[in-house]
Amino acid sequence: MLERYWAITVSLFPFLWKGFIETLYISLVAIVVGSLIGFFIGVVRSQRVPVLNGLFGLYIHTLRGTPFLVQLYLFYFVLPNSGISWLSWDSITAAFVALSVYTSSYVAEIVKAAIEAVPRGQSEAATALGMTRLERLWYVVLPQALKLTVPPMSGVYVMIIKSTAILSVIGISELTRQGEISILRFPRDVLFIYGLIAAMYFVYCYPVLRFARWAERRVGAARIVDLD
């Protein structure tokens, strides 16, 4: 029995490893791109710019109010159907865009909450020194706010890594999809193969979770997002 499982593991591993690398790659790109977009939106939202504030609020609530699976279908089926030529992208682009946009909505809320968590006195003191709004933000508020974002941000990153599994639905050959294909080769060992996949996700996500908990202890657990 054990030998059999070992044989399956050995013969499938290179294949699953390829999927794992793809998962790693997609999640890292989405995290970087999504964080940049989200950071920008969060900073703008914290400044309460009249029209932009409402628009970005709508963007964030739309993304948080719908399941990622549905968003993926929107990016994969609906946008290419719109007739605009640059939106008729393939599945991998749709996956990257959907995941980055999804990441940005969570990052934006964290950044905004962190900026608002920096004591007002800091900003007021900077004003008293004659700093402009941008200088206050760049030299005083943001450096302090960034530290606060680390624990919740790591939590969101784990969520994003786990969301890449959903990309298997549109045929991206990431870890879950590679597993589904492997099952065609070993149809009797469905459970074992999914267990193997789960273990590979665990190896990726668990250190990030541990880091989040460690950072929470260092920075202080500010539960700054309550509806997510």
Binding site: V158, A165, I166, L191, A198, C205
Partner: peptide
């Protein structure tokens, strides 16, 4: 917490 819901559903 460290594995995707989709994989858990399959399991």
């Amino acid at each position: 917490r460290a594995t995707p819901l989709l994989v858990q559903i399959y399991l």
